[in-house]
Nucleic acid binder design. Structure first.
Length: 296
DNA sequence: TGAATTGTTATCGT
DNA sequence: AACGATAACAATTC
């Protein structure tokens, strides 16, 4: 579940070992991770020097010396490891980069959701990604316009990578709690003072997350200490540190969601009855597998 | 065993 | 028609 702070921590840790290195060889042990294809990635990166290692949203960006980019998305369970760093054989190795100093970078990914993407389009590959929440342009005014431009529940909007890039489930819940906003609050009803609180809360949780090197809640991401500072995430049934009320776990947009009902009062009564309509798809409408049509 | 997790895509409803 | 909500999906661990 690496979100922005975890990815930033990984990038900072890998930067001294990757910047300036040349890629001698690339191997993929899981064909579907490579976009557009394993041969395309291999041809693109072999012999190239890594000029900079950067982060954009939750993407790790290898800026290559020919202006092409290698993008790695860790998705749920991806992680980087250097060969020899840990005792024993690394598990779930899906890709390997041999570098010119003899070191080897491993991409390990138990669930195989991670992606390694090669693009020559250094300028516009990230056009579909939203604002960087820690950039100076991420102001209350900008966020206010983004919220007002849509009529969506706050939490799904904050999780939408095309609006803001980098927030995931943990930091979204934390930011909403710190801002005192309910995850189902409609984005276009948020008042200016609340927008400022939300903007500041987002930056505060992400900054603190980076300072504490991310959140470690399971075996996927080791080394973080932000879990000690979480106020709602994973704390259903416990007392809110701020008001003492019991933290609730609910379901918002198919995501486990944690709130303090006192600090984050529900918007209005239950005016939006759309949310109460439970539509049961009588038939999952299984479509014919489309792999017949699009051979890869 | 089923729940949990991310982001993309297809589809349904308004 | 455009937008928002929803579900399915990829795969694995506990």
């Amino acid at each position: 579940m690496p979100e922005l702070p975890e990815v930033e921590t990984i990038v900072r840790a890998c930067r001294p070992r990757l910047e300036g290195r040349s890629i001698m060889r690339f191997r993929s042990l899981w064909a579907r991770q490579a976009v557009p294809s394993v041969p395309a990635v291999r041809a693109g990166v072999t012999g190239r020097r890594i000029v900079r290692l950067e982060r954009r949203g939750k993407f790790i960006v290898f800026a290559l010396d020919d202006d092409a980019r290698l993008l790695v998305h860790l998705r749920m369970s991806g992680r980087f490891e250097f060969a020899g760093d840990s005792q024993g054989e690394p598990r779930h190795v899906r890709a390997v980069w041999d570098l010119d100093d003899g070191s080897r970078l491993l991409f390990c990914d138990a669930r195989k959701f991670g992606r390694v993407m090669y693009t020559r389009d250094g300028r516009t590959w990230s056009d579909g990604l939203g604002a960087e929440p820690l950039a100076s342009r991420f102001t209350a005014a900008w966020l206010g316009r983004a919220l007002a431009a849509r009529a969506r529940a706050l939490k799904p909007l904050l999780l939408d990578q095309s609006v803001i890039a980098g927030l995931g489930n943990i930091y979204t819940d934390e930011a909403l709690h710190r801002a005192g906003l309910h995850p189902l609050r409609r984005s276009d009803t948020v008042q200016p003072g609340e927008v400022r609180a939300l903007r500041n809360a987002i930056r505060a949780v992400l900054t603190e997350g980076i300072r504490r090197q991310g959140t470690t809640i399971d075996w996927i991401y080791p080394g973080g200490r932000m879990q000690e500072r979480l106020r709602v995430y994973g704390r259903g049934g416990e007392a809110c540190d701020r008001c003492g009320d019991t933290i609730l776990t609910l379901r918002v947009g198919q995501r486990g969601t944690h709130i303090c009902p006192t600090c984050q009062p529900h918007p209005k009564s239950k005016r939006n009855s759309a949310g109460s309509r439970i539509r049961v798809p009588d038939r999952p409408a299984r479509h014919a597998p489309r792999d017949a049509a699009c051979a890869e």
